[in-house]
Design a protein around this nucleic acid. Structure first.
Lengths: 348, 348
DNA sequence: TAGGCTAGCGCAATCGTTTGTTCATCGGCA
DNA sequence: TGCCGATGAACAAACGATTGCGCTAGCCTA
């Protein structure tokens, strides 16, 4: 059903229908005509063609979220945050999985540009990232989430990863551990780099020397946590504690450690990062740095939508302060503490 | 960068650029002109405006997936299946979460129709579903996944839920249980209805009477599993085994049961459905009916894409045979059996 | 040398909306 | 009666691409 067909039925010009349907302010129209058209609109259940409208208006009302893998609970929650903020404002959201492959990221972004999406939220960026450079070059609004890129000043939503790494490690040090390993993320990714630096900073602050052998660059998957911990446990002088760059990595490590007969936390204490729902459900419960994942998404979406509606780019960077949640993976019989619900946001 | 601008630069008509860019077969063009245009295309990195093209071609190359909640690992995996099949064929995928609310489903579908997506995959349908009726009425291709609607013959991909419910229950009966409860899904949803009927059928087949008090209609979330098991455990004569309609429900139930001091499987045996990744990770490992979740998505996508490309609707219904995976939640110290990898598909 | 064929492009309609502008009609007023 | 200002609605130009068809050279043939 098009405007033209409706116009034929109502014996008016298509533009008249359009104005009535859009409730054009300052529209002068005879009451009779108006009600005739409105009745027709109801009867036919007319839905304007979004494509045609998009072409004319230069706005598609579509956002895109680019992540490594929605199968990872962290990114699933992030996406929900985006959609929950976008849907009420009339936007639909495309989801693109990259599996961490730059090439897939590039091709997705290219496809998104061709589709003229109104904005892009990208949670799979690298510190040096050609795709992000491309985003900067184009005029379209975008927001980086969780990971940032250090080649420019991009709108960003994430956690204070340096502090998070520090707090997590300090917790282990506070428990008396001295040989603390780090299942690190890639140093090409901001979270990987910063959490590692936090890990090192905590050592310095405590006057402890960090053993380079205890840092293994794993990745962000469960499997990488598993293979990482294997290397650590076969060391001559294995660690008594591990700080993993994410909860998924920690969970992968815990599984292997348990298979090898290590008791957690007695033989091996374990801290993760992100506090995904799974973290409180595994056995033993995983001590981790809580970050508001859903809010990452919703705040990023708001940043994006504000840019779209105001038609001017932003440089806002929102950084949430992570919160240590102590569970049984570091302290046997830890009370399942509710975390302090302080807002703890720092925006620039 | 538009065709018109390029045309001005190359001193040709826009249509000529279009034909070169699209590699129009049967295009007769001077080699000089062609290479001039091709060079221009490379230099400018021209990307045709997908909106304009969509308007002209009446095809957007966008699919939509409608699910209750991507935070549920089952649906996340399903979505990956869809995207993995759609992306290589040049399609992007919109994700819509309904939270199981018919109203949100309706409004999402309406929005998708306005956007003229090329096809819809819906995994949140009810047995009687106005939204699905609407999908049938419209010309556009669609596929139902996991849940079907019984008011018509729709293209469908899912598992044989009746058989699955039967096998799961028969497993518990085979272990000697006689008081077997069912944490049931909504009877307004096909999976809920069918798995329940399977549960009953298994009882009949074994000559066992199913106690109506042992069936509680919970829902599909972890919380509903938790509240459901509470009711069951406070019964005068509580069950010794439970068949839960999904893994998430089973996991919610297990958590509560453990808190109340029930040992699994000694005091309470537990079977789930779907074999989500989480099922093998919880402690104790969850016995469950394995279904190929990722394939649900990819097969559904293929069904959809074939409809789109052939431009004719299909009535194919693909039903996978579920496979019992025995873990520690029913058999203490169960070997972590690899399931038989038989194809077990029945299509109509 | 005139007519026809063909290679190589340009023309213009079309997809369905939106929106600035123009046009016709009518009532009021002088 | 003649003019003017509203009022109500039509006109038409975009938006950026695709595509059937028409047009103009040049060359070959008779």
């Amino acid at each position: 059903m098009t405007l033209k067909e409706l116009a034929a039925r109502a014996n008016v010009h298509p533009s008249t229908i359009s104005r009535v349907a859009n409730n054009d302010p300052g529209l002068r129209i005879a009451t009779a005509t108006r009600s005739r058209i409105e009745a027709l609109l109801r009867d036919t259940g007319y839905q304007p063609n979004g494509i045609a409208r998009g072409l004319k208006m230069r706005q598609t009302n579509v956002l895109a979220v680019v992540i490594p893998d929605v199968t990872n609970p962290f990114f699933a929650a992030l996406f929900r945050g985006v959609e929950d903020a976008a849907a009420p404002r009339g936007f639909n959201v495309l989801l693109c999985n990259t599996d961490g492959l730059p090439e897939r990221q590039r091709s997705h972004l290219q496809s998104l540009q061709a589709r003229r999406v109104d904005g892009v939220i990208i949670a799979s960026s690298f510190l040096k990232d050609p795709s992000v450079r491309e985003l900067r070059r184009q005029k379209g609004p975008y927001v980086l989430v969780n990971r940032f890129s250090d080649e420019g000043e991009d709108p960003f939503v994430g956690s204070d990863d340096l502090l998070g790494g520090q707090l997590a490690t300090a917790h282990l040090i506070g428990l008396g551990h001295t040989r603390i390993a780090h299942l690190a993320g890639k140093s090409t990714v901001s979270t990987g780099m910063l959490r590692r630096r936090g890990y090192l900073a905590a050592h310095s602050a405590a006057g402890l020397a960090a053993d380079p052998d205890l840092i293994v660059e794993a990745g962000y998957t469960e499997e990488s946590g598993a293979s990482g911990i294997r290397r650590l446990l076969s060391l001559a002088d294995p660690p008594t504690a591990v700080f993993a760059v994410t909860d998924m990595v920690a969970i992968g490590a815990a599984e292997v450690a348990r298979q090898r007969g290590f008791r957690i936390p007695e033989d091996l204490a374990l801290v993760g990062y992100n506090d995904i729902p799974l973290a409180s459900r595994v056995n033993p419960g995983l001590t981790t740095m809580h970050v508001p994942i859903h809010e990452f998404g919703s705040v990023a979406a708001r940043l994006l939508l504000d840019q779209i509606e105001s038609d001017e780019p932003t440089r806002r960077r929102v950084r949430f302060t992570p919160d240590l949640i102590v569970r049984e993976s570091t302290v046997a019989g830890a009370t399942r503490t509710q975390r302090s619900a302080r807002p703890s946001v720092s925006a620039e």
